[in-house]
Write a protein that binds this DNA or RNA. Structure first.
Lengths: 344, 344
DNA sequence: CCCACTTGCTAATCCGATTTAACAAGCTGG
DNA sequence: CCAGCTTGTTAAATCGGATTAGCAAGTGGG
């Protein structure tokens, strides 16, 4: 691209030294003796010429490209993706690394081909990322490489995983409800997804419910019912409408994600019930919409930025990677949808 | 990263030829004579050894890294970003290119530093992208390089731009309203942003309004009023509530983006008005929320995927880049929020 | 005065490809 | 029978750095 770049040879020539000296001076290495004068001349020449090292050439020798490859299923198409990528990018940038972002769309051939493309470019490490937390089987090209699993788990695959701490998130939701005084009329919408309806729910649903039930029980409260359904906005609308139509009068709704909450809001609104006056709503994810609903939604946030950041930080640590599961805390976003239970 | 890779020298040795022959055979080049037998042996050896070329080494010689760098302001944090990136990635992938994604967060020092990092890695081209359509002044490091401007314009900077065709989008919105029979009681919410309230609106607002007014006029209709305001959900809610409170009874609302529409829905709902029975709503962007509102929102879609794709395709075309503005069509998403005007 | 040891620097090699220049062997036509 | 062409192949240079091995000049001790 465009005119010839200044090379180290140019710098060496201008400073009147060999390229060896220039290389050591520029790298700031002290394991070879260079006079202060020579060092200064090299640095000055580099400065004047606007010298920038050619990372491509360097990595041919050093085997390090300061580059990390990220392979995802369809991470760019989810509303969260941006934060994951941003977290990863910023962590990479702090250590002078750059990120190749790729997406395989769930196609395992595409996945292999992308991993190859990344490997051909000599990336220092690979991050294998999933749109939602789930179990995966990474492509065989990844075996034996420096890999971090982002938002997914692969038992038997020797690599660290970075996932949200869903169980604790469930506990936090329960604590928030208890703190507001709720002990009765609590319904969970979305359920465990034990018989997975929405793949997204397999891990999230189970773990959130586990933490929720655990703390509710300890707090002397309990779930009046659990509605098992898919996790879309229309599902929330339909199921909550049905619940009300059956004569139930919930005091608090734990929606397993924000889209369900939005559907629940629609159903409650149509039934003339107010949030949180008549019914409190708490949920998980903290999508954009959560803060814009009326009333703003109290929800336990998926820590996407932190997830991306930690995944990159792990790859950048020196030494081999340990196959440990890192659980990232999910902070509770307290807004306006949880209130004291309606009396009577 | 991990064990030694197979090099071309290995392949040549196994095939019993020189690395020159191996190189030409693998590249499929015919400008040097190679016997069919030798060619076959090389290919077979490569296959058996699982040889993959080292792109880093190759590009040192060829000056082409098959890599494109994308620098954005804060593209990852917007709900649209995913599609832009996906379009860019897929276009790159089709031509065996990979994408470095970076984000400067609007900081021009960070921008320069990122461009350098990209240039140091010898990217073949750069894409300078903005979150929303606006005028930009690219960092000086970009001058003289192979650059495409994505979702932004920089008069005086010799590079092609790829932007949405906002004027035509405004025309389409007007046509949709006319087709449904609307000629009176049409209000625009969000306005021209001529005195920019929301930076996002500077170009989008002006051009959408221009197209809208043009076609409305030609169709014998006109705007009853234009509300100038910011472009967030609360603004839509507030302004439409105010409009109704003042006694106005709009038949159709043209909201300048989907967030405004969502706010308008909230206000209309609170006033007991139905969409589209009492009031039709049409808007721009087609964010995720548009299809999930009740009723689903008719909106003119921002072609993010196409934008990303075209930007990459331009960089991949051979020859110098022409400083042309490419306007990408914005398709109308007809859903359920536009109906015949209320009678009486 | 000579040997050993610093000090300061450079020549040469390597990394893994691509590409240029050249060369050996076989064939053909005069 | 030999010059000249074709055919098939390879040695060597190159890209831009990092690294290893080694060398010349100066210093100090005996």
């Amino acid at each position: 691209m465009s005119e010839r770049r200044i090379t180290m040879a140019d710098v060496a020539r201008k400073a009147g030294v060999s390229s060896t000296t220039a290389s050591f001076a520029l790298a700031g290495r002290t394991d070879m003796r260079i006079s202060d004068a020579a060092r200064a001349r090299v640095l000055e020449a580099a400065e004047e010429l606007g010298y920038r090292p050619n990372v491509t050439a360097r990595s041919l020798r050093t085997k390090s490209t300061q580059t990390i490859g990220l392979v995802s299923d369809r991470i760019t198409t989810t509303p969260f993706a941006g934060d994951v990528i941003r977290g990863a990018m910023e962590a990479a940038r702090e250590r002078d690394n750059l990120l190749f972002i790729t997406e395989a769309g769930g196609d395992s051939d595409a996945e292999s081909s992308l991993v190859h493309a990344l490997l051909d470019r000599q990336v220092d490490a690979l991050i294998y990322a999933s749109m939602f937390t789930r179990y995966v089987t990474p492509p065989k090209e990844l075996f034996g490489r420096r890999v971090v699993l982002l938002n997914c788990l692969a038992p038997g695959f020797a690599a660290p995983s970075v996932v949200p701490d869903e169980v604790e998130a469930g506990r936090d939701a329960a604590r928030a409800l208890l703190a507001a005084g709720h002990t009765e009329g609590i319904w969970a919408i979305g359920g465990h997804q034990a018989l997975p309806a929405t793949p997204e729910g397999i891990i999230a649903g189970n773990e959130r419910m586990r933490g929720l039930e655990e703390v509710l029980r300890e707090g002397g409260a309990r779930l009046e019912g659990v509605v098992e359904c898919d996790w879309g906005t229309p599902d929330g609308h339909r199921e909550v409408s049905a619940l009300l139509a059956q004569g139930h009068r919930p005091r608090a709704l734990v929606c397993l994600n924000d889209r369900l909450s939005f559907g629940a809001y629609q159903a409650l609104g149509e039934a003339g019930l107010s949030v949180p006056g008549d019914v409190s709503v708490i949920s998980f994810d903290d999508q954009d919409i959560a803060s814009v609903l009326r009333p703003a939604l109290t929800t336990v946030r998926l820590p996407h930025y932190q997830l991306g950041r930690l995944a990159v930080e792990l790859t950048l640590r020196s030494g081999p990677l340990e196959a440990v599961v890192h659980r990232v805390p999910m902070p509770l976003q307290e807004r306006a949808s949880v209130g004291a239970p309606a009396t009577g």
